[in-house]
Structures are given as C-alpha cells and as structure tokens.
C-alpha cells in the first residue's frame, strides 16, 4: 500500500504533505489529551495486525485494516495512521519521510470516509448490521486507498498506467478478504467489547 521513496513528482509530494498536515492537525485538535494513550495503544495494535499474513491460494497478503481503524478512531485515525507510517518507515524502510504525506492521505482519507459512511450502521443494534458495515468498510477503504495510490502515480507520470492496472486488478481478491476479515473482527468486537466503539474525539 505504500508508495516508495523517490517515485512521486514534487507537486504530488507537496500536495500530499499539505493535505496530510491539515488532516492530522484537525484529528489532533479533535482528540483530547486523555484519549492519547487509547489512540496510541490501538495504533500499535493496528501496526502489529498489519504484519499478519493471510494466505490467499498459493501466495499470502498482509492486512491493511485502515477501514476498521477509521471506524474505531474517527478523525483520530489521521494522526494514528501517520504515526504508524513513520514507524514503518523508520523500523522497516517501508515508505519513507518524503512520501509520508501522500501515503498518509491514501490511507487516512478512506478511513475517515468509512467512519462517516458506515460508523452509524456499525454502532447500531444487531450483529448482522455490524457484519454488513464491516464488510463494506474493509472493501471500500482498501479500494479507495488503491485509487489514491493510482491517482498519485498517474499524476506523476501517465506511463505508470500499466503497472497501476496490474496492481489494481491483483488487489481485487484482497479487497474481498479485507472485507471479510473486517466484518468478522467487527462482529467479535460488538460481542466482546462494545465499549471500544465509543468515540470521544
């Protein structure tokens, strides 16, 4: 899901950085300092969960879970995702500092959109509705993130079209899996710990 360092053009990087800065600033403003430990520890949980490799036929894929992050954290997903991306860059060299803005926008904007689209449904009565909200959330957030990646690459250079198409098509099964896993995870949370869905930011 990361765009590597050195690929995007200057204007794309600057646009990404400005959008990310605005989103992070707003997310931080909405988050009161009491909820910093909660957002931080959940952000580390998502960091660890993104290292889980799920088999899909002969290959495997790792989870992204930005949709679920959006559902649980709301606007706070913006700073939480940026922090997780900084740590992935410094600990594993996935992505990096100059692409931090673009990558944050690609992951966090879908997260916040999912919060507004499916947040109410996920918090409503009934496990079936939560399952539906979860699937939609996982599927839509990953799709939007990939569209974001595609947009950033195509704005840099139109010739990226072929690799972008290959990445998009190969991710369709992964979108479905992300949906299934988000659905089950949300059902689990509804049964075991419904308080986790309460947002105080």
């Amino acid at each position: 899901m990361h765009i590597a360092e050195g690929v995007c053009s200057g204007p794309v990087l600057v646009a990404g950085l400005s959008l990310a800065a605005a989103g992070v600033a707003y997310g931080i403003k909405r988050m009161d300092s009491d909820s910093v430990p909660k957002v931080g520890v959940l952000s580390s949980a998502f960091f660890v969960a993104s290292l889980i490799h799920v088999p899909i036929g002969p290959v495997s894929t790792h989870l992204v879970l930005n949709g679920l992050m959006g559902l649980l954290l709301g606007w706070a997903a913006f700073p939480a995702i940026m922090v997780a991306l900084v740590l992935q860059a410094v600990l594993f060299q996935y992505g990096g500092l100059t692409t931090l803005g673009v990558n944050t926008v690609n992951m966090a904007v879908p997260a916040v959109i999912c919060f507004f689209l499916f947040g109410a449904l996920a918090r409503g009565e009934g496990v079936n509705k939560a399952a539906l909200a979860g699937f939609a959330c996982g599927f839509v957030s990953l799709t939007l993130s990939l569209i974001g990646v595609a947009t950033a690459l195509l704005l840099t250079q139109k010739a990226f079209l072929t690799p972008v198409k290959i990445v998009l098509i190969s991710h369709i099964p992964i979108m479905v899996i992300e949906g299934i896993i988000t659905a089950f995870a949300l059902m689990f949370l509804k049964k075991v710990k419904p308080e986790i869905m309460e947002i105080d930011s």
Binding site: V41, L72, I180, I181, F184, V192, I196
Partner: peptide
C-alpha cells in the same frame, strides 16, 4: 479476524 479483535480488545 478474531485474532485482530482480541489484539484490539487487549490493547483497549
């Protein structure tokens, strides 16, 4: 998915 859920519950 339950593994992810359990991680989140424990972290919370």
């Amino acid at each position: 998915a339950y593994l992810v859920g359990m991680l989140l519950v424990n972290s919370f």
